[in-house]
Amino acid sequence: MRSLLIPAFLALLLGGCLSVYKVEVQQGNVISQDMIDKLKPGMTRSQVRFVLGTPLVTDTFHPNRWDYYYYLRGSKEKTGESRRLTLIFSNDTLKSVVHGDQPGENGTQPPQG
């Protein structure tokens, strides 16, 4: 009887060690539809920064373009959800907003301004 208790106890003890905790991964700028709705052409860079926060990426070669990226992967999911928002400025005012991860996803080609 005793010889059965020790292996059963070890199996229970090691079984608890095998479960791995996976962390939810969230990176980038969290941007809601309400925040996007507040954007209007003609807003200054500081007004846009107030609404959306500082952009994750500012391109040295395209200073009139701000890119906001967001990635979320749940703890039990293998793949995550990613979003991208590109803002184009002209003369330090907002000219256009492009949604999506793929060029032409919403019917427009992202400008290279």
Rank of each mutant, 00 (worst) to 15 (best):
S32P: 02
G28H: 07
R73P: 01
P55C: 03
R2N: 14
G16W: 01
N64T: 15
V48F: 10
L5H: 06
K22R: 15
G28L: 01
N64S: 15
V57Q: 03
V30N: 01
S90K: 14
E81P: 00
V51A: 10
Q109S: 13
H99I: 03
K40Q: 15
N29Q: 06
V25D: 05
L39D: 11
P41V: 13
P7Y: 05
W66V: 14
P110D: 02
A8N: 05
K76E: 07
K22Q: 14
L4G: 04
D92V: 12
Y71E: 04
V23H: 08
G80I: 01
D59H: 13
L39Y: 10
I6R: 09
P41L: 15
K40M: 11
L12F: 01
V25L: 14
S32N: 06
K22E: 07
Q47T: 15
D101R: 09
I36S: 11
I6V: 15
V23Q: 12
Y68L: 09
V97D: 06
R2L: 12
I31K: 05
N64M: 15
S32Q: 05
Q109D: 14
T60N: 09
L18D: 00
L85T: 10
K38V: 00
L52W: 05
M1F: 10
K95P: 07
V97Y: 11
S82L: 08
G53V: 02
T54G: 01
E105D: 11
L56R: 03
D92L: 08
K76Y: 04
T44M: 13
M35Q: 11
E105L: 07
T44E: 04
A8S: 07
G104E: 09
L85Y: 11
N64A: 13
S32G: 09
F9G: 01
L14H: 07
D34Y: 14
Q47K: 14
D37H: 04
K22H: 14
P63I: 05
G15M: 03
C17H: 05
P41H: 12
P110T: 08
M35G: 12
E105T: 08
Y70N: 06
S82N: 02
M1E: 00
G28S: 02
D101G: 10
L87G: 08
P55F: 04
D67S: 15
D92N: 15
Y71G: 04
A11D: 04
D59V: 12
D37K: 03
S19G: 07
F61G: 06
L87R: 15
